[in-house]
Nucleic acid binder design. Structure first.
Lengths: 169, 169
DNA sequence: GAGGATTGCGCAATCA
DNA sequence: TTGATTGCGCAATCCT
């Protein structure tokens, strides 16, 4: 992650573009007060013109700082890249949000289905239980011969297997 | 929306304006730049006046453009607000992503549950069907004993176990 | 090592 | 008026 940025609000052609880098002073939030002449903390200056010596900074077109053709080209390309990147980033965020919505819907559908299945299951189980009871009752009555609850049922049951399952919600 | 912020592209005009890289503190942001010299310390004032050319430089402390005290204060506050806003934005995006993950997990759980319930239901239904068939068989062939493979149900019940399984969807 | 992709940051316009 | 958002450009990195 980058940290330092420096924005030079300046302009081309002024040969004096300088960037100052200031170390971070945490906590200092005060408004900068122009001190009479005392220097503040550590601001380090970085001369923007690497040109050697105090003379003329003469940058070639292909390497000059700031106003060279190449610089502008690079900046422009970067600006483009930045735009593109941000666009995609934004798009992605949007997609993610959409995904959340879809998943939420899906979840609701699934929950509903679970509810339905559960109800169905419950009904069937009840049916079974009821039936089993009936069998048991009827088995007890006649002369038992080692009747097991599940098999060999002499079931005289007259109907009584009614169950209404209306899964209503 | 905003469009033209000229930070750098503005051409000519201020000739000494320098920008500072400030870490985070709001402190000194201004700089002056003696044209040619090597900079070592940072005077806090901004020497270059933006209104160099034809305008009148009239900067009061409380309304001047660019270098006024108030301006700096406003900028600083805004920078702070921007940071805050971006932080929140980023946090939100992160949360959204997290939400997606959670929902995905939840979905899987639900799907698994559905699968389980479906299986259970299917088993019960089969059981039911089998039973029903047995009953039918025994009703049809009362004379025979030990006709059905699994159960030996002597069930006089006339079928009639009505099961409504409305499985919709 | 050149060049696109990201990212943090400050500015300014705009919203609320 | 003031904080919150948002688009934009710059520069430092990151990543190919």
């Amino acid at each position: 992650m980058s940290k330092r940025s420096q924005q030079t609000i300046n302009t081309e052609q002024n040969r004096g573009t300088v960037s100052v880098i200031q170390g971070q002073a945490s906590g200092a939030t005060t408004t900068s007060r122009p001190p009479g002449g005392s220097l503040q903390l550590v601001p380090q200056l970085v001369p923007a013109t690497p040109a050697g010596g105090g003379g003329k900074a003469k940058m070639k077109k292909t390497s000059g700082d700031k106003d060279s053709d190449e610089y502008r080209q690079r900046r422009e390309r970067n600006n483009l890249a930045v735009k593109k990147s941000r666009m995609r980033s934004k798009q992605k965020a949007q997609d993610t949000q959409q995904r959340v919505n879809e998943l939420k819907e899906e979840n609701e559908r699934l929950e509903a289905k679970i509810k339905l299945l559960s109800k169905e299951l419950s009904v069937l189980k009840d049916l079974f239980l009821e039936h089993a009871h009936n069998l048991a009752d009827n088995v007890q009555a006649p002369g038992a011969e080692g009747a097991s609850p599940a098999h060999n049922n002499n079931n005289n049951n007259n109907g009584a297997c009614n169950n209404n399952n209306n899964s209503s919600q």
